Simulated scan of single mutants.
Amino acid sequence: MQYWLIKSEPDKWSWEQQKAKGEAGEEWDGIRNYQARNNMRAMEIGDKAFFYHSNIGKEIVGIVEVCSEIHPDSTTDDPRWECVDFKAVCDVPKPVTLADVKGEPRLADMSLVTSMRLSVQPVKKEEWDLVCQMAGFKEPV
């Protein structure tokens, strides 16, 4: 299993909207960055991701799971752009802010710190476990 972080501006697509999609999940469309797209190409069904509210809040608020194979992005006819679908798994007990992540020396190399503008980014297993702990989970999700 691989781990990821996906970003969304909550006034455009919020965690509440994601949860409302239920088991069907939602296409993670509109990504127009090659590195972010390539990260989605590397995803497999069952991979987990942190759902991060960017711009407003700047915090990890939930956990999602990849629920589809890579497929064409339905918002464009350009074949270069592909995406996966995500379904909500759970809220985090305590949101983890960008300041929390930046304040934890063991997360200094996390993509959220080093590649802040990238909207779909990998998370190392040890980073995942630590952020889950910071979020109040007794065991990593």
Rank of each mutant, 00 (worst) to 15 (best):
I60T: 10
A42C: 07
I70A: 11
R32P: 03
K48S: 07
Q121G: 11
I70T: 13
K102L: 01
W13N: 06
V123L: 01
I6Q: 04
P140L: 07
A24H: 06
E65D: 00
Q2E: 06
E44M: 12
M134E: 03
N39I: 04
G103A: 11
W15M: 05
H71N: 10
E127K: 08
E65F: 00
V120L: 08
N55W: 06
Y52T: 13
L107N: 09
I56D: 09
R117F: 06
C90I: 07
E27S: 13
P93Y: 04
G62S: 08
F51M: 03
M116D: 02
Q17W: 00
V61D: 01
A108N: 08
E126M: 10
M110R: 12
F50H: 05
E44A: 14
G25E: 03
E26S: 15
P10K: 14
I63E: 01
G30F: 12
V84T: 03
H71S: 11
V113C: 14
E69D: 11
T76F: 07
M43T: 10
T114S: 11
K48G: 02
E127M: 04
D29K: 13
M40H: 04
N33R: 12
V101D: 05
Y34S: 08
V66A: 14
E104P: 04
G62K: 03
V131Y: 01
P93A: 01
T76Q: 11
Y52S: 13
P93N: 08
M116C: 00
V101Q: 01
D91E: 09
W128I: 00
D47I: 06
